[in-house]
Design a protein around this nucleic acid. Structure first.
Lengths: 134, 134
DNA sequence: CTCATTTCTTACTTTTTTGTTAGTACCATA
DNA sequence: TATGGTACTAACAAAAAAGTAAGAAATGAG
């Protein structure tokens, strides 16, 4: 449970309120959010498909990060009245506006991580956003 | 001191190694990094000027975040052999390549935080990156 | 009845990040 | 000596993020 009046919280709020970049980063930041967003950019996904497509993610973490993205209005949650349960997630209109940004980040990251990660440690890129997809 | 073989650390490394977006976010993420970067984009700054220009930042946090950015090769630290001591910080060439990305984030953030922050709470934007500055 | 599927929630633990405080080094000046 | 300026480091505390494990709900099938 987050405190609302800690120095920490107040600093965060101040920075988010005065700096667009800090605001954007507060929305995108989170261990598993990049992986989630990179998948949803390609289109609506079912919870279980999303979970199965991300190696090593726990249900606890997946749901927590989805809930945050939903709260920030970047994604929407679509519940189907079926059994077994079915829940889909997709980018909202606001989320769609992030596509150019997500693509720029992905491209920059892919272009430059090879500068700092030894080549024999480079692994298959699983998250590719190209300009055609934006 | 960070553990190197916790699940947490291993997950982070896996994601950074397989997703350009996660990599970029890992470099930019940190409470005070956006404020620092927004200032250094405009040109080299002296440590004390940097500190005085960011409200509420402690020396501890400023130096810690500068050290991380330096380690990630985004900024360089320039020591002058004078008294009183003088240290400047500036973007590296790699840091310069981030300018379009920083600008995109700033613009997106400024465009959309008004959607989620009540209007009477909006404060003066202190961090503006325009396309002319990129 | 049991087992399976899907999608969560809750309680707690571990790890990491951020913040507080005290102190340091190297001068220069009074 | 004390005080001031600049730029840190180290130790610890508080807060937040991430991870582990257990349990729940609503069916449907055997």
């Amino acid at each position: 449970m987050r405190k609302e009046s800690s120095t920490n919280a107040l600093n965060e709020k101040l920075l988010k309120d005065t700096c667009g970049m800090a605001y954007a980063l507060s929305i995108l930041g989170g261990r598993w959010k990049p992986a989630i967003l990179c998948r949803l950019v390609h289109g609506k996904m079912r919870y279980s498909d999303l979970k199965n497509s991300i190696p090593h993610i726990s249900e606890r973490m997946l749901i927590a990060q989805l809930r945050e993205l939903e709260k920030d209005q970047v994604i929407r949650r679509i519940v189907h009245a079926v059994v077994p349960p079915r829940v889909d997630y997709e980018l909202t209109e606001l989320g769609q506006t992030m596509k150019p940004l997500l693509s720029a980040m992905s491209n920059w990251g892919n272009m430059h991580r090879s500068k700092t990660v030894p080549e024999h440690e480079l692994t298959k890129e699983e998250c590719l956003l190209t300009s055609e997809e934006v």
